[in-house]
Design a binder for these strands. Sequence first.
RNA 1: GUCGGGGUAACACAGUGGCUAUGUGGCGGACUGCAGAUCCGCAUAUGGGGGUUCGAUUCCCUCCCCCGACUCCA
Length: 472
Amino acid sequence: MALMIHNNLTNRKEEFVPIEPGKVKMYVCGVTVYDDIHMGHARSIIVFDVVNRYLRYKGYDVTFVTNFTDVDDKIINRANERGVKALDLSADYIRKYFEDVEKLGVRRADIYPQASTSMPYIIDMVKEIVDRGYGYAARDGSVYFRVRKIPDYGILSNRSIEEMRSSGRLEPNEDKEDPMDFAVWKGVKPGEVSWESPWGEGRPGWHIECSAMIRHYLGDEIDIHGGGNDLIFPHHENEILQTEACTGTHLARYWMHNGMLETKGSDGKTVKMSKSLKNFFKVEDVARKFDRFTIRFYYLNTHYSSPLAYGEDNMLEAQAALKRLWNNYRDLQACARDGPSGNGEEAAAAVEGARNGFVASMDDDFNTRAAIEALFDLARTTNRMLADRTLTAEGAKRVLGFLEEIDAVLGIFPEKEEGDGAFDDVMGILVDLRKELRKRKQYDLADMIRDRLSEAGYIIEDSADGAKWKKI
RNA sequence: GUCGGGGUAACACAGUGGCUAUGUGGCGGACUGCAGAUCCGCAUAUGGGGGUUCGAUUCCCUCCCCCGACUCCA
């Protein structure tokens, strides 16, 4: 099956064909590290984590790069407010980022470049832009990009220069040849971190770091470039210009953008979650209430490109839905341990159907929502088999094997635990003991054992033909 | 204003030119000493108006509403 990706460059769903067969170079815009990450960032991080994981599931050799913007106005301002060095502040938030991302069950990217440590590549690229006539130095030591020199301007966001001029939002700037031009290098101002450059002391413009890092770490042209859809303009548009000025390529073959996370305001309307509106939920706070599996499930239960309104009710609903999958998972584990023996063939069709559903959905522009539906179908089917007692231990193992296989992509099932034969034997004795007590109608004792085990983290579920136990 | 994305049952959220998804919640059954889990069944839907079609929720046009981008932003 072919993987299809909705490419924002063409606004069409296209078959994914990597530049180099079997290999994928992917870059996703990371965060500006001047504060803790919030649930909106978490969405982007988890979405592209799953893209990364699915590409690997498909057998691609993926190089995944995501950056930290650690040189920026907001960082400098906040550092000055707090009386600390800008790079110390950003270093703290980078450390915090990894702590938070840990709570989201995210697989690490291969490389996490930072603007501050990529300065040689950035300066080289600015130099090349100037040398090729696409950039010019202004009196204040800044370097601006000649937007009009690249006819492709607007290719990603479907804008024309004329439209933008007529929007009337451009402020004239005497240093610029054209008000549309943007800074690739900013001359230093008092109280700012800066680096030496051919244009004097200064620091990079916002867009240049991504172009430079991509070029240095991944090459002139990459397969997938991702980020939030709020970055399409101007950030990604300008990245394209900068790279095109140097290499003549479009920078990336496929552009993917996740939808914004929103919250419901007091007026009932939804609004984008953002730091400036102060309507965000920090990852660390949400992670105190909900585990990584629930948070991931919540995001993956919607297509990545759709807008999504966050609310605690929605998280609770995700928790309830995921519990259904987990109950089934635990029951399968119990069956794999204590179920009847056989060859496991009875589970083959269900597993095959689920795998086909999963792969077909994920191949269709990473439709995790539809993929999850395949999992619910599988759960219903296997629950029925468990109730019928037609599922054997071997069959249950097959299903579990499949779930572990696809969980390498989704990351929504609990970590696999090593079985302990001796412990299982002891639990078996307790289950038998309760069976005998129940037969003698000594329910108070039977219930006491059940309650105590429950307190200890083990659930016993009685049914007509015996009991089963599982860890919570 | 320009560009992009949406409007689906109580809620959340998918897919599809005819077979009507999935989950949460609700209702009714089954199972059951109780608890829990599970199974079976039921109900409620495709923003408004046109058009194409034998047939549209799905395609086209138009209108309305919502969100985002155009300023830092995942």
